[in-house]
């Protein structure tokens, strides 16, 4: 072999490399020379690589790799269900549908008279159903399983509630823009009913709380609206402090009784 650059050994011939890579008989001194040269010479290692050997190894490995179980679409999927209850999907769709229907009927303006907005009327009750689907016994089939896990508790309940509000509030905001209704008139009642479901839920269970609040909505808000053909007193400017007070009271009760959500009584 000739002396190569930088005082190292010369680059081995193609023929020698081929014999080396196929484990053919090479005199010991040449074998040693090729190996020590390969250790220090990247380009020559590169000359080895495209050999059929690499392809043969790959051909052997590929079917094994294909058989190794792969977890499909795991990340995005889990990130969604870390927030949205797996049982809530259809209910969130329903919330958007009802909002759209309220806008349509408001525009036509025939249902409950000109002075009443359906968007304002449905705003409080929409998130209640979403929350019930997130933590209630009757709408979430895996409630008992969930309640026994370490993640059960107020943080998970709040995440799922946030997911419900993330659908409800933008929907109502869009509805408000389309029908020209101020944010103040629907946002506070909507939030107060949401937190109210959780707060009452810590006392009697989320499912029953949702039933009670829907009934309260029908009696206090829907009935007077139909009876007097005007927006209920509950939506007056003067009622704003009351809604704010209810919201704060609900947050306090929920925080104080948060351990209920780690047990079955929170789902009833």
């Amino acid at each position: 072999m000739n002396r190569g650059p930088r005082g190292g050994t010369a680059h081995p011939s193609d023929q020698l490399l081929h014999r080396y890579s196929h484990d053919q008989d090479i005199p010991a001194d040449q074998l040693w020379a090729v190996e020590s040269h390969l250790e220090s010479c990247g380009p020559c290692r590169g000359r080895l690589a495209p050999e059929p050997i690499a392809e043969a190894v790959w051909a052997g490995l590929e079917p094994l790799l294909d058989a190794t179980p792969q977890m499909p679409r795991t990340r995005a999927w889990r990130r969604v269900h870390a927030w949205v209850s797996p049982a809530a999907g259809p209910w969130l769709a329903m919330i958007l549908l009802v909002t759209a229907a309220a806008v349509a009927l408001d525009r036509v303006g025939v249902v409950v008279g000109d002075r009443v907005s359906l968007v304002v009327l449905v705003a409080p009750v929409l998130p209640v159903l979403g929350v019930a689907a997130s933590w209630g016994r009757s709408l979430d089939p895996a409630h008992e399983l969930t309640a026994a896990t370490p993640r059960a508790g107020l943080p998970l309940v709040l995440r799922r509630t946030a997911a419900v509000l993330a659908v409800t509030v933008p929907g109502l905001a869009a509805a408000g823009l389309l029908t020209g209704i101020g944010v103040v008139r629907w946002l506070l009642p909507c939030l107060a009913f949401t937190v109210g479901t959780l707060a009452l839920g810590t006392l009697i269970g989320v499912t029953r709380a949702a039933v009670v609040l829907v009934a309260a909505w029908a009696v206090v808000i829907v009935a007077p609206t139909i009876a007097f053909s005007r927006t209920a007193l509950a939506f007056d400017q003067a009622a704003t402090p009351v809604w704010a007070g209810l919201l704060v009271a609900g947050l306090v009760v929920t925080a104080v009784r948060r351990m209920t959500f780690t047990r079955l009584e929170g789902n009833r």
Binding site: W77, P86, T146, A152
Partner: peptide, 18 residues
């Protein structure tokens, strides 16, 4: 109780996350 639209793997993974 289980989520009917989940695959076996998704469901068990969801409980593992819980």
């Amino acid at each position: 109780g289980h989520y009917r639209r989940f695959t076996v793997r998704e469901f068990v993974a969801y409980v593992a996350w819980l």
